[in-house]
Amino acid sequence: MGTILCATRGGEASYRTQDRAIEIARERGDKLLFIFVSDINFLSHTSAPVLVDVEGEMENMGEFLLLAAEERARNAGIEAEHVVRQGDFREQLKEAAKEYQVEMVILGRPGKEGSVTKLQMLEELVKEIEQELGIEAVIV
């Protein structure tokens, strides 16, 4: 049984990605590994003092969101685990893919509004993963 790495934020907009990842995992007989990459770049948009352990809070939030994703997968009969990382999304995703020796990476298509992730960036990332790591990557 192989492992599919699925990057997800966990919100409603990600349910479509999670559902598709669950379908693919079932078709291939693989297990799912959900990943949440927490970056706190948004803090650079304020001059207000940041006194809170934001990374810790974001990590807790990511854990919670991925537990919810895990439940969705398990309810669909798919074995699932999760990992929360901090830092640059591209780098962290590639590192996790290498570390867990995954066979496939699934990325969600950006939502219609408000998403900071752009489709072009994801397409470039897919190429990078395939060329650098030799792992199949898809945008769903």
Partner: peptide, 8 residues
Amino acid sequence: IAERAGYP
């Protein structure tokens, strides 16, 4: 924070 959780 909301955007990071998928709720822009």
